[in-house]
């Protein structure tokens, strides 16, 4: 039985939400200069003084990526909640509830489709604001749904990664999302569809060691932290000072692990060009 026969067309929700900033001024995390929040948003959360790329919310990311900020979010399949009945200092179910209330998100990945440069594309965005963008069964399911939708639409898949790694509260189920998401990448490959990865700050652990490193083209935002092991773990192991810029996007580019580091302002253009070229075979331009 193929995955196609099991495929259930996602219900379309079409959620469009805008957050109104309540603070007039924002301080740059890097140069600490004050920026009018309105200006910062206009500059795609990039500091106009020093060029530091600040974190983007899922809603912002989707808005910036699709033509005219228009997109359709898909409803993601539900997975069993708290399969291990995990409890640390807090119950995992309570943690999920709190995170949902705080972030207004269901889980650490959101999937949407729409047009980029007039071409169909599926975009999956990881939410670092949701338990550090950690990967559990729900994220695996979301990524699979994104890949299946891309195959159904014969469109490319673009993923924006941001993750602290595996979701410890799901134990080995979270580790098994590494092969699971890798299967999704293989399905795209077999369908001959482009799979583009945009690594954003930070992308580490099990996410970096699975779907985040398997793109046809690997793009990163400037200065994004990208790596497998955490910096503190490395320091404790090798008892050496880490080199300047270690595990940053530019470092990975220098070491041959990325194709390009692209400023946020240029991302949409770069993505539109790449999918237009790579998905040349499948592009059916919608009637204007």
């Amino acid at each position: 039985m193929s995955w196609l026969t099991e495929y259930v067309r996602p219900k379309i929700r079409g959620l469009l939400k805008r957050e109104v900033p309540d603070n007039l001024w924002t301080n740059c995390e890097s140069c600490e200069q004050m920026i009018l929040t309105k200006d910062l948003h206009k500059a795609l959360n990039v500091c106009p003084h020093c060029g530091h790329h600040m974190r983007a919310s899922v809603a912002e990311r989707l808005e910036w990526t699709f033509d005219n900020g228009e997109y359709t979010r898909i409803e993601l399949p539900k997975v069993p909640v708290d399969p291990l009945s995990f409890r640390d200092r807090k119950r995992y179910t309570d943690r999920l509830k709190d995170e949902r209330a705080k972030s207004h998100l269901d889980e650490s990945m959101v999937v949407a489709h729409g047009l980029i440069g007039g071409q169909n594309a599926v975009v999956a965005v990881m939410a670092f604001e949701f338990i550090a963008g950690t990967m559990g069964a729900a994220l695996g399911e979301a990524f699979l749904a994104a890949a299946r939708l891309a195959i159904l639409q014969q469109s490319p898949l673009i993923v924006f990664t941001a993750s602290g790694g595996a979701r410890m509260q799901e134990g080995m189920i979270s580790l098994m999302q590494m092969p699971r998401t890798t299967v999704a990448v293989e399905m795209l490959k077999e369908a001959g569809l482009p799979y583009l990865v945009v690594l954003t700050n930070p992308t580490t652990g099990g996410v970096s060691a699975s779907f985040a490193m398997l793109g046809d083209v690997q793009i990163a935002e400037p200065n994004a932290l990208i790596g497998f092991a955490g910096q503190r773990v490395i320091e404790d192991t090798v008892r050496e000072k880490l080199p300047e810029g270690f595990q940053r996007a530019e470092y990975l580019l220098d070491h041959g692990m990325l194709d390009m580091v692209v400023k946020r302002a240029d991302l949409r253009t770069v993505l539109a060009q790449l999918i237009g070229q790579l998905n040349f075979r499948h592009i059916a331009r919608p009637a204007a």
């Binding site: 060691a209 490193m213 497998f228």
Partner: peptide, 19 residues
Amino acid sequence: PGIDAEARGQAEAIARSIE
């Protein structure tokens, strides 16, 4: 978890190995 391993793409190597 070493500097050399990260420099040579530990994450990619593991991902590709799973693949």
